[in-house]
């Protein structure tokens, strides 16, 4: 690694304060709440994820699904139009199908609940991609194609032939900074925090706003939760 300075340490004080994770329990279980009412489908979280993590063209760890007919296209039901967006990245499941099936333990749980990938151990069998019911894992199929002629981002590139996915920006958590998608969401639709703390913002929102987990019935126990869109008001 080149000399230089940790990019978090180099931030202006006000910026650094903005990204602080804030208070949490001694043994945090990191999680996130995504507010579907606030999500505007702008993909800022997905784009900063690409930038932060040096993800080559063609692969996205984080993407925004349109609950509609096509990208940014509503669906018509009983004469009424409706459209929502559903940001989707690794759900960091407590009962993670990917962790179970990895033949070499290259994908594993950290103590803080984050599902991680060891791309030095991964043999590239892609069984985890099969097992993931959320379709959030991607594979390095070939030489990285980047939009700029050098590696960007804040982490090292992963080797060809291995699987990768959202890391909840563990390299930022180490400096008590929220993941980059949380930082960059202009609509403030992503709330990060400690799910082991019953009074954390995510936990309170899950309680107050009928938060749910995707594919809850599969029993994967995700650490990412969603807040459903609000009911429209009458004028």
């Amino acid at each position: 690694m080149a000399d230089g300075i940790n990019p978090i340490d180099a931030l202006p004080p006000a910026s650094r304060a903005y990204g602080e994770i804030g208070p949490h329990s001694d043994r945090p279980r990191w999680g996130m709440v995504v507010d579907e009412e606030r999500c505007i489908g702008c993909w800022s979280c997905a784009v900063i994820c690409k930038s932060e993590n040096d993800i080559p063209l063609g692969n996205w760890w984080n993407r925004i699904l349109t609950d509609g007919e096509a990208l940014d296209t509503p669906a018509e039901q009983n004469g009424a139009l409706e459209m929502h967006w559903l940001p989707l990245a690794c759900q960091h499941c407590e009962n993670a199908p990917c962790v179970k099936v990895c033949p070499v333990g290259a994908t594993y749980h950290r103590d803080d609940g984050i599902v991680m990938m060891d791309t030095d151990r991964c043999i590239g069998c892609r069984y985890c991609m099969i097992a993931c019911p959320y379709g959030v894992r991607v594979f390095n199929w070939g030489a990285a194609e980047l939009p700029v002629p050098f590696d960007h981002g804040m982490v090292d590139a992963r080797p060809v032939g291995t699987v990768e996915k959202c890391t909840m920006c563990v390299h930022r958590l180490a400096d008590s900074q929220v993941p980059s998608c949380v930082w960059s969401c202009p609509a403030e639709a992503r709330i990060f925090g400690d799910l082991n703390d019953p009074e954390s913002r995510p936990n309170r929102l899950i309680r107050d706003r009928e938060g749910y987990a995707l594919l809850e019935d599969l029993g994967t126990k995700p650490n990412v939760h969603y807040l459903p869109p609000r009911r429209k008001a009458q004028l």
Partner: peptide, 13 residues
């Protein structure tokens, strides 16, 4: 691209 465990402690400098 070189391989590594990307459970690194910190951002790249």
């Amino acid at each position: 691209r070189a391989g590594r465990d990307y459970d690194t402690p910190k951002s790249k400098n």
